[in-house]
Design a protein around this nucleic acid. Structure first.
Lengths: 332, 332
DNA sequence: CCACGAACTGGAAGCGCTTCCATTCTGGAT
DNA sequence: ATCCAGAATGGAAGCGCTTCCAGTTCGTGG
C-alpha cells in the first residue's frame, strides 16, 4: 500500500502538502492539488484510516451499540442509521451488547477505544448513572429508547405510555371489557410505560385492571405463547389480549390457535411496534406503529448536527405512536 | 486517558516491558508483571486500540460485510457471527453493501483500511474476478452464500439446488402437477441454483416446466405479491407456488388471500430459508430450512483457525437444506 | 520599486503503541 | 569462584499520518 510519503515524493511536494489536500484544507494552490491528486491516482493511494485516526483522534465513524443484531426492531434501526450516515459520508461501526451489563460496557469501551467520533446507544442493562457519568466524557453520544432526564437532549424515545393507552383504548372502543396483557420485562422502561398507558385507558373506562390478567414476558415470540398458556391455565376469562410487542402477539396468536380459539372471534389481539411481518400474519395484526426508522434517523441527525456541525437540522426527541387497524380485533 | 508511558513510569519499568505484559509475551518476570498490572489498575489504563493497530497492523477484529442489516436472514447471520467472535475474544466490525457494487467495494475498503485481521463477506454485486484478485491480497477473508471454484476453500454456502429440488419434490409427492415458481433475482447464484433444483424435480416426475409459471422477484415480500398477481392476471393455472424465499412466500400468501383464494385448499405454498416468522404465519408455512447460523458460525471458525491459529476446528464448506413440513400445502 | 500582509509550503514533532536489538542479569554447570 | 546460555530488561526506531510553526512566495498598494 502506498503511503503519503510516496505520494509526496512522486508529486514533488512535502508531506504536509499532501496531508492538506487529503483533508481539503484551505491555503493549497490549485497547482499542488492537481499534482497530488495525480500522484495519488497513479499510486492507487488509499489513506490509512488507522494512522489518520491516531494522529488526529477523529475517525469519521460513529459507533452503534444495540442489544441484539437480529429482530425486526433492531434491523430497521440499524439499516436506517447506516444509510443516513453513509449518505453523510460517515461510517457506522456496529456491535451488540446483549442486554447484559458487562457486555454492554465492553461494547461501549470497544467503540470508544476505536476513536468513534460519537456513539448511538441502545442499551438496557447499563445504569442511568453510568450514562450520566459517560456524558461528561469526551465522546458524545445519543441514547435510543430511553429517557434519562439529566441528559434529556441526548435521548430519543417513543411516547410508550401513549402507545399502551391507544391500544387499550381501541380495544375498549370495540367493546372489549376483559382485556389481558402480555408485557415485556417490567425491568425495562418501555415495558412499564406501555403498561401504565394500558392501565390509564382502563381507568378512564371504569374497568378494573386485574393482576391475574397480566403476564410478564421477555419480548420474544415464545413468551407470547407462554403468556396465553398461563392465562388459559389460570382459567381467567378475557376477550382480548394486548401485547407489548408484535413478536409476543404472534406467539400468543399461535398459542391461541393451539387451544382451538378462533381469532378474532373468540380472542382478539393487538400488538406493538408494527414490525414488517404483522401484515403477513393471518388475520393481519392490528398494532401500534412505532416509527423506529424515524427515530433512528433523528438520532443520527443529532450527531451530524452536534458532532459534524451540519447546519439546518431540526431535532426532536420524542416520537408518537399511532394505531394501525387491521383484522385481529373482534367488534362487539 | 492514561498511556503506556504513564504506566511504565508508575511501575518503574520501561515502555517495552509494559508492552510485553500487555501482549502476554514470554520472557517477562512475575515481578514486573505484577508491578505493571498494579500500575495499570491504579491508572485505570485502557490500551489505545488505534495505536496498537497502527504499530502492529493487527486489530483483533474481523470485518463483516453484508448486503443489508435488516431481515431475518441477515439478522441471524450477524448475531451468530458476533457471538462466536465475542466468545473467542475478538470483535466484529459490521457494515452493509446494499447489493450495489460501488457500495460493496467501499465497504470492503473501509474494513480493510481499518486493519481488520480478516473479513466475512456476503456480497452479490462484486464480481468473482474481483474476489479472486482480493484473495491474493493481505487480508484473509471468507465468502458466504457463494461458491467460487478458484477460492473454494474460502466459500461457505448452501446446496441451493438440493433445496429447490426438495421443495418441488415435496409438492409433487403431495400430488401437485401445476407448480408456479416465484424466484429471486436470477442474477444471483442462489436464485438460479434453486430454480435448477426445482426444474430437476419436475423433470424427474415428467412434468414440463412452463415459462409462464415463472416470476422473477427480488426476495422482498412485496414482490411475492406482485408474483401472484402476475400469475393470476396471466390466467395461468396452478395449484401450488414454490417461492425461493420466505418473504416472497408470505407476500404471495397475502396476495392469494386478496384474490379470495383459500390456503392451502385452492393454492399451496412452500417457502425457503425457514425464517423465524414462517411459524407464525397462518397457515404455518412449509419451507426449506437453511442453517444460516451454522454456516455463519462455520465461517467464523475458519477465521479462528486460519487467522487466529486456534486448533481443532473442523471446517466444512457446504451445508444441506432440509424440508420443514407445516400446513401450507394441500394434499391431493 | 519597495514594503507588507496574506497565501502557500516545508520541516519536524508527536499521536500511543510494537518490536528489534543490545545490554544486563540470572542461575546452573564446571 | 568462573563461565555461559538463556531469561529479563531497556533503548530507540518507526507504524502513517496530522498539525504547529517558521519560512517562502506572491500580489497589491503606496
Amino acid at each position: 500500500m502506498a503511503t503519503i510519503y510516496e505520494v509526496s515524493a512522486l508529486a514533488g511536494v512535502s508531506l504536509s502538502s499532501v496531508s492538506r489536500v487529503l483533508n481539503d484544507h484551505e491555503h493549497v494552490s490549485e497547482k499542488t492539488k492537481k499534482k497530488v491528486a495525480a500522484a495519488m491516482k497513479e499510486l492507487g493511494y488509499r489513506p490509512n484510516t488507522i494512522a489518520r485516526s491516531l494522529a488526529s483522534s477523529r475517525s469519521n465513524s460513529v459507533g452503534v451499540l444495540v442489544s441484539e443484531l437480529h429482530g425486526p426492531f433492531f434491523g430497521s434501526m440499524l439499516s436506517a442509521i447506516e444509510l443516513e450516515l453513509r449518505n453523510a459520508g460517515k461510517h457506522a461501526i456496529i456491535t451488540a451488547g446483549h442486554s447484559d451489563e458487562e457486555n454492554e460496557i465492553k461494547g461501549l469501551e470497544f467503540l470508544i477505544d476505536r476513536n468513534c467520533d460519537a456513539l448511538i446507544l441502545l442499551v438496557d442493562a447499563i445504569s442511568d448513572d453510568y450514562l450520566i457519568k459517560l456524558s461528561k466524557g469526551k465522546t458524545p453520544f445519543v441514547i435510543l429508547n430511553r429517557n434519562i432526564s439529566e441528559i434529556r437532549d441526548n435521548c430519543f424515545y417513543l411516547d410508550n405510555e401513549l402507545g399502551g393507552y391507544l391500544a387499550a383504548k381501541h380495544l375498549i372502543e370495540q367493546g372489549h371489557k376483559e382485556i389481558a396483557y402480555i408485557s415485556g420485562p417490567l425491568s425495562k422502561q418501555d415495558s412499564t410505560e406501555r403498561l401504565i398507558g394500558h392501565k390509564k385507558a382502563l381507568v378512564e373506562a371504569n374497568i378494573c385492571f386485574k393482576e391475574n390478567l397480566l403476564y410478564e414476558g421477555d419480548y420474544l415470540t415464545e413468551s407470547g405463547r407462554e403468556g396465553i398458556n398461563f392465562l388459559i391455565n389460570n382459567k381467567t376469562t378475557f376477550t382480548a389480549i394486548a401485547c407489548s410487542n408484535d413478536e409476543m402477539a404472534s406467539g400468543a396468536m399461535k398459542g391461541a390457535r393451539d387451544h382451538k380459539l378462533l381469532i378474532p372471534e373468540q380472542c382478539s389481539f393487538i400488538g406493538f411496534d408494527n414490525a414488517f411481518f404483522t401484515e403477513y400474519l393471518y388475520p393481519q395484526l392490528t398494532t401500534i406503529h412505532f416509527p423506529v426508522a424515524d427515530m433512528a434517523i433523528m438520532s443520527t441527525h443529532w450527531i451530524l448536527k452536534h458532532v459534524y456541525k451540519q447546519k439546518e437540522l431540526v431535532i426532536k426527541n420524542m416520537f408518537l405512536p399511532n394505531l394501525i387497524e387491521r383484522q385481529s380485533i373482534q367488534q362487539y
